[in-house]
């Protein structure tokens, strides 16, 4: 299975990864090899096999709907690089 440099650029954008022009051909090549390896799984007959959504053969346990703890905003926000009036601040994003 082979991917093009364009495929890889799109994936890098979606994953917010930076791949330089110089690295692109090499990374594309290695990425293709990994995909080919994984692609071998497609040769296995999986008819009638229920897709596995989790390796643990268990059901989800549910918790009671109650408020568990008081807010600890100060501690949680202490590591934020920028904040004001209780908001986290990030570089301006607008649609």
């Amino acid at each position: 299975m082979s991917v093009t440099s364009r495929d890889l650029e799109k994936m890098a954008l979606l994953a917010r990864l930076e791949i330089t022009e110089t690295d692109l051909p090499d990374v594309t090549e290695r990425f293709s090899r990994v995909l080919s390896l994984v692609n071998e799984l497609n040769t296995i007959d999986t008819d009638g096999v229920i897709p596995m959504s989790n390796p643990h053969d268990m059901e989800q346990r549910l918790r009671e709907d109650s408020i568990a703890h008081p807010s600890d905003r100060e501690a949680l926000m202490a590591s934020a690089p920028a904040q004001q009036d209780g908001y986290f601040l990030v570089p301006k994003v607008i649609d």
Partner: peptide, 9 residues
Amino acid sequence: FGHETGIDL
């Protein structure tokens, strides 16, 4: 916030 965006979670 002027040139920044505020985030309320």
